[in-house]
C-alpha cells in the first residue's frame, strides 16, 4: 500500500486545506464539511490528512484507542499489562450503506453462535475514537445512520443496547464529510454538527489545473520520489500544527474581538450560540497556527465564512448561496 498523496502538494483549495489544518489543531472545532463538484480533490485532501496528523499514544490492541489502561472499556479483551504504543491518528471511512451494526458495533454473531459467548464486536465508531470519521457523499447517507451519528457526536459516547448487550464506550471523533450539493441537501441538524464548512470548485485558472495534473502524474509514476520531495513541506505543516496546539491556551482574546464575533452572529441571524463558539475557537486556532499572540479582526474575517456559512437559518429554496450574505455582513461589521 503506497502512502497517500501528500497534503502540501494539493494545488490551490486553500480554504479547504486551512479548514482541515484548523480542526487538526483544535479537534473541538467539530469537523469539516466539504461541498463541491466531483474531481476537485475532496477525498484526496481527507486521505492525505491522515499522514499529516500527529501520532497518538494508545493502549496496544485496544479497540477504542484508549490513552491509558485505566480508561479501556471493561468489555474489551485487553490484558492488564498491555503497553502503550504510538500509532497514527485513526482516519476511518464510513462507507455509504454501512449497516447500523457496522457503525455502532453489535453482538459478535459468530462467537455467539459458535461458542455461545456474549461478546461485543466494535464498529466504526469505536475505531474512530480520538481520530477522524470521514463520510464521503454525506448527503446521501441514510437517515437512520445520520440520527445515530448526531446522537453520538453530541454525547461523545456510543451506547449499544440491543440483543442483551449493554455496552458503552467513548466515541469522540472529528467528523469530516464531503458531498456534491447537486445530489441532495443535508439535514440542518447534521449541518450544524460540522464546525466549519467549505465549498470547493474546480480551479478556473488553466495553469492551476495543469499543475494539478502534473503533480498527480509525478505522484503516480514515482510515488516514493514524489513523497520524499514533499515530505519536508508536510513536516513543516505538522510541526506548525503541534506548535499551535501548545500555544492554543495562551492566545489572548480581547473583549473587543469577542464583541465583534457576537455582533457578526447577531447580524447574520445565526441560530444558537454554537456559531460564536466555533468562530472563536477557529480564530484561536488560526492565531496559533500563524504564531500571533492574540486574535485580531483579520482572523475573524477570515474564519467567519468557514464557521458561519452553513449556520444561517436557510430557506431550503434560497437560491443565492449564504456565502455572499456572510461576506457582506462581515464587511459591514468589521469593515
Amino acid at each position: 500500500m503506497t502512502r497517500a498523496f501528500p497534503f502540501s502538494a494539493i494545488v490551490g483549495q486553500d480554504q479547504m486545506k486551512l479548514a482541515m489544518i484548523l480542526t487538526a489543531i483544535d479537534p473541538k472545532l467539530g469537523g469539516v464539511l466539504v461541498f463541491g463538484d466531483r474531481g476537485t480533490g475532496k477525498s484526496t485532501a481527507v486521505r492525505s490528512l491522515a499522514a499529516l496528523l500527529p501520532e497518538i499514544e494508545a493502549v496496544r490492541g485496544c479497540p477504542v484507542n484508549s490513552p491509558s489502561i485505566a480508561q479501556r472499556p471493561e468489555w474489551a479483551d485487553v490484558p492488564d499489562d498491555a503497553p502503550l504504543v504510538t500509532r497514527p491518528t485513526p482516519v476511518v471511512d464510513l462507507p455509504l450503506g454501512a449497516t447500523e451494526d457496522r457503525v455502532t458495533g453489535a453482538l459478535d454473531i459468530e462467537r455467539a453462535l459458535v461458542s455461545g459467548e456474549k461478546a461485543f464486536q466494535p464498529g466504526l465508531l469505536a475505531q474512530a475514537n480520538r481520530g477522524y470519521l470521514y463520510i464521503d457523499e454525506v448527503n446521501l447517507l441514510e437517515d437512520h445512520i445520520v440520527d445515530l451519528l448526531l446522537d453520538v457526536a453530541q454525547s461523545g459516547e456510543n451506547v449499544v443496547e440491543r440483543e442483551g448487550l449493554s455496552i458503552r464506550h467513548p466515541a469522540r471523533f472529528v467528523l469530516v464529510g464531503s458531498g456534491n450539493p447537486e445530489e441532495g441537501e443535508l439535514r440542518p441538524q447534521l449541518l450544524d454538527r460540522f464546525g466549519l464548512s467549505v465549498e470547493v470548485r474546480s480551479p478556473d485558472d488553466v495553469e492551476e489545473r495543469v499543475e494539478v495534473v502534473q503533480r498527480r502524474d509525478a505522484y503516480e509514476t514515482n510515488p516514493n520520489r514524489f513523497l520524499k520531495k514533499w515530505d519536508r513541506a508536510d513536516k513543516e505543516v505538522r510541526t506548525a500544527i503541534l506548535t499551535a496546539r501548545d500555544a492554543l491556551d495562551s492566545i489572548k482574546v480581547r473583549k473587543a474581538e469577542l464583541r465583534k464575533c457576537a455582533e457578526l452572529c447577531i447580524a447574520l441571524g445565526a441560530d444558537g450560540l454554537r456559531g460564536e463558539l466555533t468562530l472563536l475557537r477557529g480564530c484561536r486556532a488560526l492565531a496559533g497556527y500563524e504564531g500571533a499572540a492574540a486574535i485580531t479582526r483579520e482572523h475573524i474575517s477570515r474564519i467567519a465564512p468557514l464557521a458561519l456559512t452553513h449556520r444561517l437559518r436557510r430557506d431550503p429554496m434560497d437560491e443565492a448561496g449564504s456565502g455572499v450574505r456572510v461576506s457582506r455582513v462581515v464587511e459591514e461589521v468589521l469593515g
Binding site: R38, G39, V212, V213, D217
Partner: peptide, 26 residues
Amino acid sequence: PDDMRMLTHAAARLGVDSLRAPLLAL
C-alpha cells in the same frame, strides 16, 4: 509538462470540469 498542459487545456476548452479527466487522458 507540455503534453500535460495540452491535455488539460483541451479538457478545459471542452467544458470538462473534473480534473480526473485530463489525468485519465494522460
